[in-house]
C-alpha cells in the first residue's frame, strides 16, 4: 500500500534543492485508534474455556457419583433377586401336591373316589352316591419330595394334643365365630 504513492512522486531533479517533505507528513487517522483490542473478546473466550472445564468437572463428579450409586443399586438388586429366589423356592415347595395333600390329611380330609353329579336341567342325580372311605393311607412318603422335608404342617402349632389329626373335634374358638352386632343383623342397602 505504502509503495504506491511513492511511485506517483516525480523523480527528484538533480541540483534542485529537495522539497521540504515535512508538508506531506500527517497524523495516522483516528480510524486506527478505533481498532484497539477489545477485552470483552478475551473475557468471553476465557470464560467459555473455564465454563467448559467447570461443566466437565461437574459432569465427571456427577458421573462418578452415579457410578457408585449404580453399583450400590446393583448390589441391592442382586440381594433382592436372591430374596425373591428364596421366597419363590419356598412357595414352590408349599404349593407342591405333596404338601397340600399331607396338610389336607392332617386336617382330617379324605378323598371321595365316587363323584356324583346333579344335572340342573332336570334335577337328575348321575352316579351313585357313596360315603368317602376314611383312613386313607398317609400319602407323604409315597411320592417323595425332598424339598418339603423341613416345611411345617399348616396346623402344627395347635396339633400338640391331637397328633394323629384323624378327627378334628376341637370346638371352634370364639375368634372363628362371625361377629354379630347386637340388635338387627346388618343388611345391605339396596335400591
Amino acid at each position: 500500500m505504502s509503495a504506491v504513492p511513492v511511485q506517483t512522486l516525480p523523480a527528484p531533479r538533480r541540483g534542485e534543492p529537495a522539497a521540504a517533505p515535512a508538508r506531506r507528513l500527517r497524523l495516522v487517522p483516528d480510524a486506527v485508534r478505533g481498532r484497539k483490542p477489545r477485552i470483552a473478546y478475551a473475557i468471553i473466550a476465557l470464560g467459555a474455556i473455564i465454563l467448559v472445564a467447570a461443566a466437565q468437572l461437574v459432569l465427571s463428579v456427577a458421573m462418578t457419583q452415579g457410578a457408585y450409586e449404580l453399583d450400590s443399586l446393583r448390589v441391592q438388586q442382586t440381594k433382592l433377586e436372591r430374596d425373591r429366589q428364596i421366597v419363590g423356592e419356598e412357595l414352590d415347595a408349599l404349593q407342591s401336591p405333596q404338601n397340600l395333600a399331607r396338610n389336607a390329611e392332617e386336617l382330617g380330609m379324605v378323598p371321595n373316589t365316587t363323584p356324583v353329579y346333579l344335572r340342573l336341567s332336570d334335577g337328575a342325580v348321575l352316579g351313585q352316591p357313596q360315603a368317602a372311605g376314611g383312613g386313607a393311607a398317609a400319602s407323604g412318603p409315597l411320592v417323595p419330595n425332598s424339598l418339603i422335608a423341613d416345611v411345617p404342617l399348616v396346623n402344627q402349632p395347635l396339633a400338640g394334643d391331637n397328633a394323629s389329626g384323624g378327627a378334628v373335634t376341637e370346638p371352634p374358638s370364639d375368634a372363628d365365630q362371625p361377629i354379630v352386632p347386637p340388635g338387627a343383623l346388618p343388611t345391605p342397602d339396596t335400591h
Binding site: 401336591p97 405333596q98 411320592v143 419330595n145
Partner: peptide
C-alpha cells in the same frame, strides 16, 4: 435346577 413337585 429344582423340581418343586419332587417325585411327581
Amino acid at each position: 435346577r429344582i423340581y418343586p413337585n419332587g417325585a411327581v
